[in-house]
Nucleic acid binder design. Structure first.
Lengths: 135, 135
DNA sequence: CCTTGACCTTCCAGTTGCTGGAAGGAGCAG
DNA sequence: CTGCTCCTTCCAGCAACTGGAAGGTCAAGG
């Protein structure tokens, strides 16, 4: 199976597969006579695994760790769980950060009348301090 | 005021100020005899404005737009409000995406016993489909 | 046999928003 | 004069790809 087919089967662009190879996330694919990379069903499985882990937001490094655990018959499920929990904590941190931004922004928006007059509490909030509404 | 002082006053690294200048977010600073950039209180205000907008997650492009509106005495507050609302929508989209990841991930974690046995529903979930728990 | 088109190969550049470092000049204390 | 800190420039790199150029391969059609 050449790279285009593997890409379709795994649901990732061919370029991404080459990229994963270049950074060592996956091993170098075997080559055929003509120099084309050659993939089999097992390789596609790996690519699908990667795609799913990435879609859950795991950074590529963590995906590498997951792949190692995946191919290790001896691993403890606790190790995997721990990686996943770390990731949940990172997601929580990002969400908290975004929600804090959102809160500040909506406070400012609420105080802005939003018509064609030029005074605007949003810009004022950005130009002085961005403390919450001073009661 | 040279760049180091301005940086401290505005709460951004000097490198970042040069970077903002290089991408045209701020105008080229005036230079002194010795070639050093020279800043005044007004420049620091602008930098602080930028820092606050960035801390609210506005992408640099949007900060440029905000700066234009900020220095435009004629602008309508509705324009600013609209920019801010766009940004809130983007934040909401990101949060929704993160929460979806989180949900899938915690479902998998809950199904993983997390001990030293090698079977792990998390890896299984990643290697087959990542559908939600099949009831 | 030749051309067309789809595929593959490599490498380089760009994205976003900085950050680090090297190499060299400027300014001041001792 | 020697240090030390600051400033200048430019180059490289982070994540995680994505796009494009230049060129090789392969199967089909006229």
């Amino acid at each position: 199976m050449n790279i285009g087919k593997a890409a379709k089967a795994a649901g990732v662009p061919a370029k991404t597969i080459r990229y994963y190879e270049s950074i060592g996330l996956i091993g170098s694919a075997g080559r055929r006579e003509n120099g084309y990379r050659d993939y089999d069903a097992r390789d596609v499985e790996v690519l699908r695994f990667i795609a799913r882990a990435r879609s859950l937001g795991f950074p590529v490094r963590a995906v590498g760790d997951l792949l190692k655990l995946w191919s290790d018959r001896e691993r403890a499920s606790a190790d995997v769980r721990s990686l996943a929990q770390d990731h949940v904590r990172e997601i929580d941190a990002k969400v908290a950060e975004l929600m804090a931004m959102r809160r500040t922004l909506t406070d400012l928006i609420d105080r802005c009348h939003g018509d064609d007059r030029p005074d605007c509490p949003i810009l004022e909030g950005l130009s002085s301090c961005h403390a919450k509404a001073p009661a």
